[in-house]
Design a protein around this nucleic acid. Structure first.
Lengths: 148, 148
DNA sequence: ATCTTTTTACAATATAGTTGCAAATACATA
DNA sequence: TATGTATTTGCAACTATATTGTAAAAAGAT
């Protein structure tokens, strides 16, 4: 998905973390810094591997991913393949940046789709969240590479 | 989601299982019988609890759910909350019956939406699977009860 | 510089799902 | 209906993923 990428300096990331009430620590800055380079949501394993050099603890990473999600800096989703993935929420718009994700049921690759690509209509009895557009959409199928 | 429910007798279920090449066994019939009563996809834990009286083994249940999925009698999906859920595939139409699912991010309740409730358009670079309508859609958000 | 609270890092513990295998069962064939 | 063979079950052991307890370390307020 094309979007103007907002890249924050370390100092900005530290301020961002503090603004949520959390303390700014090495592991947290590292996680945000890595995620702001990511073009798709990353799994715990992928983040752990990327931050390998820092040698940070698995449990610490899990706790930080959850904490950062709780305060709204990250979103945590399962795209249909039973893997948690984390994505930086774009704070620039002051709200969740919603766009559908396409996940390959074979290779697990995740693709961000333009948020215009999906139209959800809300029939009679459907949840109010749908009418208010407060929802996330995950689409699963075979990606072009795996389908070939 | 409203649909004419197809209820099969035990004998019919046994024949259905055999028609896939699998042997008809107590656990397998029990699983199918339970799932054809289900109004939404069920997790392994839910099925296990429902079949508690039969006292059937966890591993056997897991294996059967996978086997029945492999031969196409069930579908296995993760609705965004990191829980595998199994659903009887309707063989009456000779194909996967596709409809979007709405899963509450709070209570985990799953709701089936009419397949007309979602319109996915396929822009330029999107996966071919989308253009061909070979995909599943999961929507997550707060259900009415949890939003209240 | 000091103090209090949060966070880390390690280990221990849960939870979900899988695998190995002997005994039991399904079902094809006689 | 009995018999033989391949599949399936049930138990236990195991793996992977995720969570929790806690003493020591670090953050940030004073």
């Amino acid at each position: 998905m094309k979007k103007e990428r907002i890249v924050r300096s370390i100092a900005e990331l530290r301020a961002l973390i503090r603004s949520t009430g959390l303390r700014s620590t090495g592991p947290r800055v590292a996680v945000l810094q890595r995620l702001q380079q990511a073009i798709t949501p990353m799994s715990h394993a992928e983040i752990a591997e990327a931050l390998e050099p820092a040698g940070l603890d698995r449990a610490t990473l899990y706790r930080n991913l959850i904490d950062l999600t709780d305060v709204g800096l990250l979103s945590r989703t399962d795209h249909g393949d039973h893997v948690w993935r984390f994505e930086l929420r774009d704070q620039a718009h002051g709200q969740t940046e919603q766009h559908p994700h396409f996940t390959c049921i074979d290779c697990g690759e995740v693709e961000c789709l333009p948020d215009t690509s999906i139209e959800v209509s809300a029939p009679h009895q459907s949840p109010r969240a749908i009418k208010r557009h407060h929802f996330e959409v995950q689409i699963t199928g075979l990606c072009d590479r795996c389908a070939a």
